[in-house]
């Protein structure tokens, strides 16, 4: 009787632990197949038929349609350079060089992946060709509720969010070496 009870306990605990571990590893920012550059993380295999089981499970569970190899690559940032979570009530400076791509976009998304909007119809998003650049070709922009000089993404509200840079028509992370690649830095200006 006692060994039967023990067996039952072992099975229940094993089931719970296994299910929890599966749920946890399929979370948005799991490390399997991840490509990290600074605060940015991409999953190059997400748009690939040979992706790892964790990435596949994540894509299926969230019902995503990831960018394919010839389309582009999405980099996600949920933290600033200091490691603090990005918050909608704060102002951030995003500057530096972006990897080689035909074009890229920068968008604020909720952690669940919804696009964040301002005034119900303007998405908190910017397309690279509409940006003004520094003489060396690098970019400098600000995201937050305080009006900034140029390249400003208007965002208000509260709570954590993520910034996604999508590089289109870029071979980064698939065919090319990423060790020399730089992504912009994300610095907290004020809260």
């Amino acid at each position: 009787m006692r060994s039967f009870l023990q067996l039952f306990l072992v099975l229940v605990c094993g089931l719970a632990l296994g299910a929890w571990a599966a749920w946890y590893s399929v979370q948005r920012n799991h490390g399997f197949g991840a490509l990290n550059i600074g605060v940015w993380t991409a999953w190059p295999s997400a748009g690939d038929v040979n992706s790892d089981p964790y990435t596949r499970a994540k894509v299926a569970a969230e019902g995503e349609v990831p960018l394919g190899a010839a389309e582009g690559l999405a980099f996600h940032a949920t933290q600033d350079e200091q490691g603090a979570p990005l918050r909608r009530e704060c102002q951030y400076d995003i500057s530096g060089q972006t990897p080689l791509a035909r074009l890229w976009t920068l968008t604020a998304h909720s952690l669940e992946g919804e696009v964040l909007f301002r005034d119900n119809n303007t998405a908190a998003s910017i397309v690279s060709r509409n940006l003004s650049r520094r003489p060396d070709g690098s970019i400098s922009m600000q995201i937050g509720k305080t009006v900034a000089h140029s390249n400003w993404i208007n965002l208000d509200g509260n709570g954590p969010y993520q910034i996604v840079i999508r590089l289109y028509d870029s071979q980064l992370g698939r065919a090319s070496d990423v060790s020399e690649t730089t992504m912009p830095t994300v610095r907290l200006l004020s809260c």
Binding site: V10, G14, L15, L17, G18, A19, A21, S25, P53, R56
Partner: peptide, 16 residues
């Protein structure tokens, strides 16, 4: 328990 958890974990991830 850990063995059961490991098997369940792999099964769940593969079946999702």
């Amino acid at each position: 328990t850990l063995l059961v958890a490991g098997i369940i974990h792999i099964l769940v991830v593969l079946l999702i």
